[in-house]
Design a protein around this nucleic acid. Structure first.
Lengths: 216, 216
DNA sequence: ACATTGCAAAGTGCATACAGATTGATCGAA
DNA sequence: TTCGATCAATCTGTATGCACTTTGCAATGT
């Protein structure tokens, strides 16, 4: 747990992590007194943290009800994946256009280095590499607002994307799709980069649909 | 002032309105005690409202400092306009593809009805029409998450876009650009709709750049 | 005159307290 | 047995209070 910042900031990070890592599953209730006890603070900072998490879309709040880890409807989940595909496509296009030589090289290295994880079937490690790869893509677009939007959307999708690398053959396919994106970016081919990124997310969307929890 | 919802919700709406309408200019300080006095509540709901507005990006907060209406740097402002153009393009493309017959008809009517405002030079009224026009575009995409992102981005850009219709000839140009978008959507020409929407925002971006407040 | 230190005023961060809402259980009646 | 009402337990919404931080000003020393 990071010790910097105010109590509220620490709690926001901690709770967001618990949601994104799956420690708190969609639908889980977050009552203020328990959280206060767990973090050994009063309810005031807890409430502010929940307020912020609510604005981020990670939890749902209703008056006089406990906060609940967002349990999106299938329709909304679909809209998020579609939005994610569009955002990734934007990042890929802009990256193909704007990445510095160093950024391009680093992206390619990151990608090439992951091939051994694919052969080893190292799901956990590949997942970490995957996060790094996409983050590089988002940064490479050199657009801070797009970066914020894509990061937030990714966080909200995390619980539904988690198990995708467990599907048979998904690792190798993911690697291949990344390869297409990298190639297009190295060639500064914006259209190809955008299309490759879009279809990459589309496939993840399909792979993840299985795990969507039905709305209450 | 809308009376529904909790105290905090009312305050969030009220303060967001003040920022978006320009009653509170970028850089303005929002101290908790004054706000509490102004809304006749304690500091607790005020703090929660500020927390939420901070998460929305409308105000900036630092520990032990008063909240400040976001005063974005020129670079960040540029990234927001660029993101806005991409988002509007997405909405236009999806609208061209997905709008129902009724939605298309309503959009066209809204557009045609505004021609008299252009001739009359009614800036205020045209501005209201403009908001309505774009909102229809966002809804027509039938993607809730994209709708949320574009709405939030629009809110953050509002202070910098306000004066655009005061520029000579801007009204007529805006009408013409809307026309191109409408035509493309009526024809279900996704590519043309996307391009028209993108360049529409680009022009607004240029028109608004003049009014950007310099970073501190 | 100018820099520095000390202090007071004001503001934020968090804890505690209380009021109102919700929920679930229990008891009674149909 | 089942439905309904009532009440207690629990939780959220808001107010208030206290401690710490920041900031501006003034007094003191150079």
């Amino acid at each position: 747990m990071i010790r910097t910042g105010t109590t509220v900031e620490q709690m926001v990070r901690a709770i967001a992590d618990m949601i994104v890592t799956g420690e708190l599953l969609p639908g889980a209730k977050l009552d203020e007194v328990s959280l206060a006890a767990r973090f050994d603070v009063s309810r005031t900072p807890v409430r502010e943290a929940l307020r912020e998490l609510g604005a981020m879309g990670l939890i749902a709040r209703e008056p006089n009800r406990s906060a609940v880890v967002t349990n999106v409807t299938e329709a909304y989940l679909h809209s998020m994946f579609e939005a994610m595909a569009e955002l990734e496509a934007i990042c890929a296009r802009l990256s193909a256009e704007r990445m510095t030589v160093d950024e391009r090289r680093a992206l390619e290295l990151e990608h090439r280095g992951s091939v051994r994880l694919v052969h080893a079937g190292a799901e956990e490690e590949y997942s970490a590499h995957n996060t790094e790869f996409h983050t590089r893509l988002y940064r490479g677009a050199h657009n801070d607002h797009v970066f914020e939007m894509v990061t937030q959307t990714r966080a909200r999708l995390a619980p539904f994307r988690r198990a995708q690398f467990r599907l048979p053959g998904r690792l190798a396919k993911s690697y291949e799709e990344h390869g297409r994106i990298v190639t297009a970016i190295m060639r500064a081919d914006t259209a190809a980069a955008g299309q490759a990124a879009y279809s990459h997310v589309e496939i993840v969307s399909d792979a993840s649909a299985v795990f969507a929890t039905p709305g209450e």
